[in-house]
Simulated scan of single mutants.
Amino acid sequence: MDNLPLLTIGITLLTCVLGVVGVHVYSAGKAQRQLLVDRMSHTGQMPVVGARRRRFTGIDRRLRNTGLGKRIERKIAVTGLDLTPGEYFIYVFAGLLGLYFIVGAVFAPFFGVLAALGGLWGGNAFLNWQRVKRTEAFINQLPELTRVLANATQAGLAMRTALVMAAEELDNPAGEELQRVADQLAVGHSLDDALGELAERLPSRELVVLVTTLVLSSRAGGQVVTSLRNLTETLEERKETRREVKTMLSQIQVTALAVPLLGLGFLLMINATTPGALDKMTGAGLGQAGTVVAFALYSVGFFLIRRMSRIQV
């Protein structure tokens, strides 16, 4: 293999990074265990363990003071991931190093640079995907949510109390998001503001309709139970329609992924039949420009197929 030294350097660097992370995790776990032992020796009871111990606190503290760190923090906040900006930054950085050395060793060093640049986009796309995934999971719980709210209001409970009850009964992500709403209401926020922030965190047509119904009912009164019952039936029908549309478009989604994978497969075939061909191709400026244009066209094809298959229900 022509790129054996590069692959060796990449694996060595990646091993060093993983070794440092492993030592850090081990030392943090050992310190936490010693802290638990000290507490038990003083109290004689098992202490209550809170949230997990955060890693890379120094990097996280410095990163939060920058514009990049604040943007990362806002994106993570709406995904429901148990990550800090510092942890996310370190994991993405380690992933970029791995992509550069592995792809550069398999194809050519220039492809490693392109893979690292694609990894930057992939890190942001991962957060967006998590947000969409969490929003869809919340939408699937909306019929159950409206049913709980309708039953609670029919029993004579106020809307604030009904939201607290729904937060306790529903699973995540609905339970976690409604608990945020309940906490905001407990510290003095209005129902309009709390529900409005919920709609901003998880943007969807169904949630906007529910929030509008609850806000109008709290302002003007009216048959809130009847409105919630009708909304429950509508959301159940929309849920089934969304599932059918997603099933029908699954083949198109696979096609969108197959288009760029075919290009990578052809590159592997070329490099396997003629060893060193990719190094020669990307060794000149014209070859690098052609490679960038080819990857750009594959990316355009991927996004166009995804765009044409996106149907708003």
Rank of each mutant, 00 (worst) to 15 (best):
L195Q: 14
G196P: 14
E197M: 09
E197A: 10
L198S: 11
A199C: 02
E200T: 04
E200K: 08
R201T: 03
P203A: 02
P203M: 02
P203T: 00
S204C: 06
E206T: 00
E206S: 01
E206G: 01
E206P: 00
L207D: 00
V208Y: 01
V209Q: 09
V209C: 02
V209P: 02
V209G: 01
L210Q: 06
V211A: 06
T212H: 04
T212G: 09
T212C: 02
L214C: 08
L214G: 06
L214Y: 10
L214N: 09
S217Q: 06
S218E: 07
R219H: 04
A220P: 01
G221F: 11
G221E: 12
G222F: 03
G222T: 05
Q223S: 11
Q223D: 15
Q223A: 12
V224C: 07
V224I: 10
V224H: 05
V225H: 13
V225A: 13
S227M: 05
S227W: 00
N230E: 05
N230A: 03
L231Q: 08
T232D: 12
T232L: 03
E233I: 02
E233N: 02
L235M: 09
E236A: 07
E236S: 06
E236D: 10
T241A: 05
T241C: 00
T241Q: 03
R242K: 06
R242E: 08
R243L: 14
R243K: 15
E244M: 02
V245F: 04
K246M: 06
T247I: 15
M248H: 05
M248D: 05
S250Y: 03
S250M: 08
S250I: 05
S250C: 04
Q251H: 08
I252Q: 13
Q253H: 15
V254C: 11
A256E: 07
A258Y: 06
A258T: 11
A258L: 14
V259C: 00
V259M: 01
V259N: 00
L261T: 14
L261G: 13
L261S: 14
L262H: 02
L264D: 05
L264S: 01
L264P: 08
F266H: 01
L267H: 06
L268A: 12
L268H: 07
M269C: 13
A272D: 13
A272F: 15
A272H: 15
T273H: 14
T273K: 12
T273A: 13
T273E: 13
T274S: 12
P275F: 10
A277W: 14
L278T: 05
D279I: 08
D279A: 07
K280G: 15
K280S: 15
M281S: 04
M281L: 15
T282N: 14
G283F: 07
A284S: 15
A284E: 11
G285S: 11
G285M: 13
